[in-house]
Structure formats: structure tokens, C-alpha cells
Design a protein around this nucleic acid. Sequence first.
DNA 1: TATTGTTATACTCTATAACTATA
DNA 2: TATAGTTATAGAGTATAACAATA
Lengths: 152, 152
Amino acid sequence: MAKDSPNNLEAHLGYWVRYVSNHVSHAFTQKLAAKNVTVAEWVVLRELYSLGAVYPSELAEKLGMTRGAISKLVERLRVKCLAERYAVESDARYQTIELTAAGKRLTPTLAKLADENDHEFFGHLTKSQRTEVANLLKDIVQRNGWKDLPIS
Amino acid sequence: MAKDSPNNLEAHLGYWVRYVSNHVSHAFTQKLAAKNVTVAEWVVLRELYSLGAVYPSELAEKLGMTRGAISKLVERLRVKCLAERYAVESDARYQTIELTAAGKRLTPTLAKLADENDHEFFGHLTKSQRTEVANLLKDIVQRNGWKDLPIS
DNA sequence: TATTGTTATACTCTATAACTATA
DNA sequence: TATAGTTATAGAGTATAACAATA
């Protein structure tokens, strides 16, 4: 049966979604690398930018990651002087994470790279094409009840 | 400007493509794991299934990976008794890689999982929706001249 | 010297689970 | 004992570059 042939995968929509996704992400990875930032770091920077001071555990929750993973990412951002840890007086088990001034300056620049990257690969589509594809994809997200942010 | 705001990324089509791609791939990773196979291994299995006996360097070329990466993947498949190395008499620097009988049996089963996974997430779309999205994505692949297969 | 395949090393991304400090 | 955060360990995925064998 052709349906189950291992050579049939180009008939899969998921194949093309993954193909495009991987290449678009790869291009973005390269753009971020020019600013010495990885994709996972960008995700945290963006979240910190919009949330302000947060607990690592909140960050983990929001991003659908473990506390251990967040701990390492925050440490990397700290080493790069983009984020800082602050003690919480009321409960010494907690700490807040916050962007440094440098982090606050850098994040919008990275956002611009994200815009450029999107425009580079999807900018040629018409408005109605973009809308239709986006709606189909959002619908898939919704009907599967996915809530966490995509990371890689 | 809202356009460059770090909070604007949900307006990016690439965001939704990545979001869906990651979740669909993750679900497929789980299905493969039940068969004790990783995604990278599946990609090589599928290629070996359709190509028959090939040199590792050909495999690397076809899949857009380095020879080192292929070397390790082939070794993993060999340990799992899914593929085997054979000496080439005419030139001892070369070798051919080929699926074992078990590898040939398993690959169509994995292809079926790929079919099921695709149906699970995209099966609700109409034929014309699928076609339109696939065509837009294929067009993006073509206009960027991408040739290698997506891996992750 | 050029080529094939292997190996050493390294890095990203992530998880699980054990651990420390605090409550 | 329960919770926050850290660390140890592991494993997938991949690259670069040095290496051995062969041509």
C-alpha cells in the first residue's frame, strides 16, 4: 500500500511544516548568534521583558520548562550580564529574576531580528494567505489544548 | 513601535509554524520511542529503505548532515540490529550501509506511525486546505533553494 | 596528498532526580 | 515535611577538527 510506504512522507503536511519550521528557525538561530544569544535565551529574555521581575518557578511554568532548565538559562543570562537574580526578603527560598539595563536594551533589538526573519520567509504571502494559514495553525493549537510556548 | 515589540511575536507566522511543528514532532517522537527508535534514526532508516545499499558519505550528503553524525547514527542502528556495514572490495576506504531484515520489517511500521501522526493533527483539514498550505510551504522551500531534508 | 570513515571534543536543549536551604 | 532553586547525570542532536587507513 502506498499509504504506508516509507517513501510517502512528502505527502504529509507535517513533513512540510517541519521542513519550513526547521529552516526558518535555523536562520533565526544564525541571526541571534550574531548577537551572542541562543534561541532558548531569547525566549527567556522576551518573557522577562514582558513580565518584569518574576520567580524562576513562574518562568518555568509560563514556558513549560522545568525549574532546572530555567536555572541554567538564567545563569547563562547572568554571565552575559543580561539578567540578574535578586533576593526576596519575605521568604529566602524565593528570588526574583529581572533583566539588567543591557538586557532591556538588547531584547527589542532581538525582536527586530525576529520580525526580519519572519518577513524574510513569509513576507511574500498575501495578507489573506497569512491569515488563513495562521488561523488553521491556531485552530490546531486550540483543538489539541496546547498551552506552553514552543522552545526550539 | 508595536512592530518591534518583544511581545509581538504571536503576530509572526513563523511563531505558529514552529509551535505546531514542535508539538507534532514531539508527538511523533513519543510514538517512535514506543518502538525504541529516535527521530534521527527514523530519518536514516527511511532513507536506507528507499535507497538500498549506500555509502555513509552519500547518506550524509542526502540528509544534509556531516559524516561524523552519520557515523554515529549508523553505529546506533547497527547496535539495534537494524542496519549493517559491508566492506567494499574495490576500494577499502568505502563501505556500504544497508538495512538488515529486521530494519526492512520495522521501517514500514514506523512509516505507518508517521501516517497516523499526520492524520492525528492534520486529518481534520479539508483537501483544499491541505493542498493550499502544502503548496505555500513547498513554494517557500523552493524559493529559498532548500534541498536537504529536515532532521529534527 | 586527497578521500573515506571514525573519534575526540564541545555545545545546545532538555529531562529526571537527588540535594540544599528555608519555611 | 513541603517548597524553591541548584546540581548531577543523562541523552538526543549536531558540528568542527584531528586522525587512521587507503588510494
